[in-house]
Nucleic acid binder design. Structure first.
Lengths: 201, 201
DNA sequence: TGTGTTTTGTGCGATACGGTACACAAATAC
DNA sequence: GTATTTGTGTACCGTATCGCACAAAACACA
């Protein structure tokens, strides 16, 4: 994981011809469309714009590359979630915005990919424990973020913040699944809109 | 799709050495553990106890075999769902039983496979439209079944039966995802128990 | 300019994969 | 009993896969 800025002194040998975050971002699109198992290293390297040996040298084998990508995607998602939930407006408004942004992302053309964790990491869980562990970390982080937002809100304590977070997370899971199976963004938006008042009751 | 009973007259040639439903059931375990892409036809044939050419002759290529298996699994699931929802007790009790049975299935050792639709079909959706279509059919059938049960109940019409069904389905999706990622059955049970009154409010 | 270090890119090797051809076996129809 | 039909099992083909070896290239440093 090297810094992409030029602030640090250059290292010894031949410089890299790529930026780590850019590679992970391009690789992500392939993993997100095809899933881990069906994505070939050739495709991944082609999408990243570099050769297989460079990929292997930089990230290790396919599983490690997937884990790097999943962490990269997950951390950015959690950061975005935190940012929206820390914004202004009522908790209902902020939660609605979270769903709106998620739906935009999950139904993005041309593939309606859904969420990388729910849509591609889950399937590998029984056969790739390391992937399962990272996916779990990320889902926990997402729920913790939601729980903090509910705890900081002025909602009643009766459904506890943790319970509300599980519920909000469940709605997100369902949106991700339905999006990947081809649901229309409009339908998902009305579904999310109908669930926000239930979660925040 | 041949009948396994001996009621019909035997067909012309050499009889099959397997029962269709048994093969689909064994194949299902492999697809459910590994997903469509990672399951090799060799494994599938070995699990089914027959050779690849027999598999191809009976079901077509790997995608068609997966679709047969998915339909087989899905139809039995929908039938089981209908049966429980048509049973006795309040709608809360019947919905609780649905979740209880689903959780038992989804967290079954040794793989905690989750649901075949959510856990393995969804990932192939962008690259295999036929799989996506079948998965959609099944999710719709599940929601219709739930909707019928809510419509026949004495719950208020304010969250419409369709809205309640979407909500109940979302909870099922989330349970399936969490189970495949390793969640404990006990945690899923408390989650489901906490959601039933919300859905049936 | 020379030396050490790291990355790049061509190319390879071993394996696993999906799918099928073909000969043999087992049953029925006549 | 012979012909016909259907399923089984071995063996095979072409391809795609992952992962790596190796030499050339591009840099820092002396």
């Amino acid at each position: 994981m090297r810094n992409s800025t030029e602030t640090t002194k250059r290292p010894r040998g031949r410089p890299r011809a790529f930026i780590t975050d850019e590679v992970l971002d391009r690789v992500r699109t392939v993993f997100l469309k095809k899933g881990f198992a069906a994505a070939s290293v050739d495709e991944l390297a082609a999408a990243a714009g570099l050769n297989r040996p460079s990929l292997y040298a930089a990230f290790g084998d396919k599983e490690q590359l997937y884990i790097h990508t999943l962490r990269f995607y997950g951390q950015k998602s959690v950061e975005g979630l935190d940012a929206v939930l820390a914004g202004t407006g009522t908790i209902e408004q902020r939660l609605s915005k979270v769903y709106k942004l998620a739906i935009d992302l999950y139904t993005a053309p041309p593939h309606r990919p859904g969420c990388m964790i729910v849509g591609t990491a889950a399937v590998e869980s029984p056969t790739h424990p390391k992937i399962a562990a990272v996916a779990n970390e990320l889902l926990v982080a997402i729920e913790k973020s939601l729980e903090r937002a509910f705890a900081a809100s002025d909602l009643s304590r009766e459904p506890s913040p943790a319970a509300r977070a599980r519920m909000a997370g469940a709605i997100m899971h369902s949106i991700a699944i339905r999006a990947r199976l081809g649901a229309k963004a409009a339908d998902l938006r009305t579904f999310a809109a109908s669930m926000v008042p239930v979660i925040c009751r």
